[in-house]
Design a binder for these strands. Sequence first.
DNA 1: ACTCTAACCTTGCGTAGCAAGACTTGCAAT
DNA 2: ATTGCAAGTCTTGCTACGCAAGGTTAGAGT
Lengths: 110, 110
Amino acid sequence: MTEERIATNLRKGVLEYCVLALLSHGEKYGLELADDLTTRGLIASEGSLYPLLARMRENGLVEPRWDASGTGRPRRYYAITDVGTDQLKAFAQVWTSLGAQVNALLEGSR
Amino acid sequence: MTEERIATNLRKGVLEYCVLALLSHGEKYGLELADDLTTRGLIASEGSLYPLLARMRENGLVEPRWDASGTGRPRRYYAITDVGTDQLKAFAQVWTSLGAQVNALLEGSR
DNA sequence: ACTCTAACCTTGCGTAGCAAGACTTGCAAT
DNA sequence: ATTGCAAGTCTTGCTACGCAAGGTTAGAGT
């Protein structure tokens, strides 16, 4: 239980860029992203993802496209935009730097 | 500016355990912690630290002690408790695992 | 007395993740 | 045909955290 609470807070602010990283390989639709992120332990439920995608859409980080060509119910595919790519780069820098500081502290505490 | 916003969200849930890691070396008082964390880029102002210390106190992760022996106004020194030590260990595991996932995504997105 | 500074703490706010569930659509079996 | 199921999208209400700004207390120097 306590571990879930730790993870929940750690995920804040990371998830958005994980989505961008996933999309940098190509379009994906909502549930596909959700399954992938769940497998990686980066979300606990879809309840995090859909509101996030809506925000990212509004901020121009991703570009959605309805696709009803296949079988089953229509899917909304998301593609990363140029703005999104820039944000991903900026995140990588901040993440690396902050991660190094945290690792340094954890190392030192053993 | 955008980088600060990224960092702000990344810090969520990390700060608490950075404080524990710092205290695992020995007692420290509020402003001392604040200065250290600011230098490391882990907080933006004391406004994050004091409410956090209050929470950690209530949860039994740290044990405060007033010290008025020195010069200047009395300082409140914080020591890590056994519960805090356990939490720090739990965090280290979650952090390592989640960090590996994020790194894997960032690597793959290049 | 007055001011300065170290040190402590409070208030109000924005935002992100989550659990739970609602709504819709196609498909398959009876 | 109708029922049921599963995939897919989205909404609501909640909680918790970091932050900026500012307020409080106490000792030290003039």
